[in-house]
Design a protein around this nucleic acid. Structure first.
Length: 590
RNA sequence: GUCCCGGUAGCUCAGCAGGAUAGAGCAACGGUUUCCUAAACCGUAGGUCGAAGGUUCGAAUCCUUUCCGGGACGCCA
């Protein structure tokens, strides 16, 4: 139940009547105006800007914004659940609702429970791809942001009513996995008793490959040692990639990030047998005349030592909005990463997806246009790709930047941070920030100030609400706190202004969900939850000075019923929002 | 040189398709614990929304120019 959408519709109906009466042109776009909660409580419960938006059109019929507003307001004022509709300022229509509206919202929140705020199923299924960290080592803190963001975004879109598939693209086909294999082979030799000394430049030095080497030694004994690289490399590579993916899946689980589908780049290329779908995708484009042999100008800015001007296989991405055309085949005959990525996105489209979302790090920003061009080309304009860029996390330790590099081997792993500050704090902190704003993540600070982290504030509100419900049970033996029982309470007893303001916040939840999903901005949920928690804490504290405002009133079970209903609705919405963010909603704080 | 993302209170950040007197947390200062958990609450103070033009009833928000910071522009992934 979304009262904002409801009134948007009602005003649209009134506008249609005005159009029919000749007061506005027939071509009116009825989606242009908004119904929103006014910033000032004094302005009522809802505010609509319709009259100002259509002022120009009204002028043609001899009216102005205020006259139009007065007409709309008059129509609204006649409706049963509208207490008052008045025109203010340049033409705002401020609507004050009868209490029954909010009582119905409360009832809906209780009856619908965890589904309150969910959107009706609508729209194309969405494919959300996120994380896609290379299978060459454990996840580090830098990966966490995109992982948490993508996971929460997927949950949000799903809750808002669109089917979502959560996907991870495993980059298991490039040169980096050969490096991984050589690095693992070194550890294998080490496990066989050889002294390997320092890990050579260009290989991954991390300790996490030690167990992989040991497992290889256990499985193959010394048999791999005598073989040429061309023979052992595919074997070691397979084992190492599998081990890395197990590790990454564990890291994801620790961060409570889940995926439905893991897609392998290697499988697309047919490198281990099977159909070469990269080639198929390129051939498809070639047959349509958008792949050709040509030359590219040398890149500007960054000077490249070994730039060679040569004829190469190019994809005419510039026909689809990219700046220049892009190469598909490397000089050694292999596919570029881009070529494989085209095949991968084509695969998603072939699986029926028209709406694609990719979550990338900001360092891939330069890649957006060409990928969108590719999706447009491959789908013949039927599919769209939305890329959400997460600015890189600057990891700090007491004000000092910490370098994060797999090669250096001194990166801070995701696991270390999760173990230290907890998954809830990591997730909430990352989701309290817009994805396209940079984030300084100071380890020392997060650990030291974890008490001040907003996640505890919101979780505490939930725990406090649950405690209140338990308290009601202690005061009234056999108290029935089930939503069904509470939905029958007399909500007319909730007359205090701070109770009403909490009800207003609850009524906003469906709107926040809808808009956060449409804007693809999970952080709006986090901010909303903080606001709801603030309202709840504030109201709770008023009960200290004014005992008659407490949730549990031993002298009135009716009043207690109504207020516990409010508390249950608040905890229900908090739990719902926290679930979208993947953060635990505790029964009590320890 | 081109492209992308930022620039809002001392600090970290919100600001919802352009809406009414720009908000929150932290830090600062002053209060509140016989009372459903003080991991909380109340109050005070703090802002030329980087700058300049433009669009209109109205701009932190849209457009142009410009300054500052970060990132990307290679057959890497």
């Amino acid at each position: 139940m979304n009262i904002f959408v409801d009134f948007q519709r009602r005003i649209a109906t009134l506008l249609e009547e005005i159009v029919a009466a000749g007061g506005l042109p027939k071509t009116l776009d009825l989606t242009r105006f908004t119904v929103e909660p006014p910033r000032e409580a004094a302005h009522g419960d809802l505010s609509a800007n319709a009259a100002m938006v259509y002022a120009k059109e009204a002028k043609a019929a001899g009216a102005n914004a205020r006259a139009l507003a007065i007409e709309i307001a008059a129509g609204l004022a006649e409706q049963d659940d509208v207490d008052q509709a008045e025109v203010a300022g340049p033409g705002f229509i401020n609507i004050r609702l009868k209490p029954t509206v909010f009582e119905n919202v409360l009832r809906a929140a209780l009856n619908e429970g965890p589904r309150f705020g969910a959107g009706a199923p609508a729209g194309d299924p969405v494919n959300v791809e996120y994380v896609s960290a290379n299978p060459t080592g454990p996840m580090h803190v830098g990966h966490a942001r995109g992982a948490v963001f993508g996971d929460a975004l997927a949950s949000l879109i799903d809750f808002a009513g669109r089917a979502v598939t959560r996907e991870y693209y495993v980059n298991d086909a490039g040169a980096q996995v050969d490096v991984l294999a050589r690095s693992a082979f070194l550890r294998y030799l080490e496990a066989l008793g050889e002294t390997i000394g320092a890990v050579p430049e260009g290989l991954y030095p991390g300790d996490y490959l030690v167990p992989v080497g040991a497992a290889l030694a256990k499985e193959f004994g010394a048999s791999l040692r005598e073989k040429p690289e061309s023979e052992w490399l595919p074997v070691v590579r397979r084992k190492a990639i599998d081990a890395m993916m197990v590790m990454i899946r564990d890291d994801l689980a620790a961060l409570k990030v889940r995926h439905d589908v893991f897609s392998s780049e290697r499988a697309l290329t047919g490198a281990d047998g099977g159909k070469d779908r990269v080639r198929a995708a390129i051939e498809d484009l070639r047959s349509r005349g958008i792949v050709y042999l040509g030359r590219l100008p040398p890149p500007k800015g960054a000077h490249i030592e070994d730039w060679e001007d040569r004829e190469q296989t190019l994809f005419r991405t510039s026909d689809f909005g990219d700046d220049i055309d892009r190469p598909l085949v490397k000089s050694d005959g292999g596919y570029t990463y881009f070529a494989a990525d085209i095949a991968y996105h084509k695969d998603k489209i072939d699986r029926g997806f028209r709406a694609l979302i990719d979550v990338w790090g900001a360092d891939h920003g330069g890649y957006v246009k060409r990928m969108q061009a590719a999706v447009a080309a491959v789908s013949q304009g039927q599919a769209s790709l939305d890329v959400r860029l997460c600015q890189l996390v600057r990891l700090m330790r007491a004000g000092e930047p910490v370098k994060m590099s797999k090669r250096a081997g001194d990166f801070v792993t995701l696991r270390e941070v999760v173990d230290e500050v907890g998954v809830d704090a990591v997730r909430f902190m990352m989701l309290m920030r817009r994805n396209d704003a940079p984030l300084d993540f100071d380890l020392a600070k997060v650990i030291e100030q974890s008490q001040d982290n907003p996640v505890f504030y919101v979780q505490y509100a939930h725990a406090r609400g649950r405690s209140v419900v338990r308290q009601a049970g202690a005061t009234f033996p056999g108290f029935d706190a089930s939503p069904a029982a509470l939905a029958g309470a007399d909500f007319g007893l909730l007359t205090d202004e701070s109770e009403r303001s909490i009800l207003r916040l609850i009524a906003q939840y469906p709107r926040v969900v809808e808009q956060a999903a449409a804007a693809r901005e999970p952080h709006r949920i986090a901010f909303y939850l903080h606001e709801l928690a603030t309202g709840f804490h504030a109201h709770w504290n008023r009960g200290k000075d004014m005992p008659h405002l407490r949730f549990v009133n031993e002298w009135s079970k009716e009043l207690t019923n109504a207020r516990i209903a409010l508390a249950v609705a608040v905890t229900s919405v908090l739990a719902s929002g926290l679930a979208l963010l993947g953060v635990n909603a505790p029964e009590e704080m320890r």
